[in-house]
Design a protein around this nucleic acid. Structure first.
Lengths: 161, 161
DNA sequence: TTATTTCCTACTGTATTAGTAGTATATTAT
DNA sequence: ATAATATACTACTAATACAGTAGGAAATAA
């Protein structure tokens, strides 16, 4: 059950934009270099995010990309759905008519729970949350993850929109 | 992020064995019919589960497959790992040396949390748990999913383009 | 011996992924 | 006006994984 590079790259790119929020457009070339992503590939991903309304672009010299909303208004779930399509590990979880035995299928219950668990995590984290974590990490150097759990718990309310 | 049919079929097959636990071997032909899975394909999946020690087989006439352990000793996580390879949504979650920026990468923290959440669900459910649920469901006929649906609806805010 | 069932190996069409490539269009600076 | 820069759009492609199919060998029971 691997995640596509689309989603991984996309989230890293959007995170760059979040860190740059308020400072005007950021060129994809810079993001591509910093994140070691193919520029041309990145362009394609950004197009998707743009038509979904999460980022906007400015063309031409001195152009680039910006977040279209404040970083606290965009969850990882938003970006994920946009690029990965769906968390749906199994079709029947969201589409009940997909399989005739939906009601009896105990396996489906498992996938439903997995689905909920993943959604719970993705929806609880905003871009702003991650930017904040990044700042804290820098402060702590690479001592690491000590207060990770506390931070996560604080974010349990997330889900603005 | 879709689940392969390998894992889905495998779990359904193993669930059949769990329901049949204590009653001798069950033929793949029966499982294939009941679960609408290609027999030949199912054979391959069972081979994997067999060499991992979760099921054992009896060849020849009156042969078939049995669980190699009690259903309460096998978790969904066990079967999942055996067939899907890994929950690892992203390589760097389990393999720290995969990427040089592991320590600084905030995106990685997200995938780590997703990973933990999924593992938590999969590890908490045994085959016996599911057999028990199936019995309860039969008692309730198909009344039983009321709460389930409500919970799913709460999560439908999708922005899926 | 015959019917049944698992075991083993190899092959294959389809779809997706992760890009690459080229060109067009918009914007800024000179 | 022109050059430089950056996004926008379209098309193509190599590699891989997925989801089977196919055929026969070996074991077992009746």
């Amino acid at each position: 059950m691997k995640l596509s590079t689309r989603t991984r790259y996309g989230i890293r790119a959007v995170l760059e934009l979040a860190e740059n929020y308020g400072n005007g457009p950021l060129r994809l070339k810079i993001i591509a270099q910093r994140q070691e992503i193919s520029l041309k590939y990145l362009e394609q991903l950004m197009t998707v995010l743009r038509s979904a309304g999460f980022v906007r672009s400015i063309r031409g010299s001195k152009g680039g990309y910006l977040l279209a909303k404040a970083p606290e208004k965009i969850t990882i779930s938003d970006v994920f759905h946009c690029l990965e399509g769906s968390v749906v590990t199994v079709e029947c979880v969201e589409n009940e008519s997909y399989c005739p035995r939906t009601n009896d299928c105990i396996a489906r219950q498992v996938w439903t729970e997995v689905h909920k668990a993943v959604m719970g995590v993705l929806q609880s984290i905003t871009l702003q949350n991650l930017v904040d974590r990044a700042k804290n990490n820098k402060g702590l150097s690479d001592i690491g993850f000590e207060n990770e759990k506390e931070q996560i718990n604080l974010q349990e309310n997330g889900k603005t929109n």
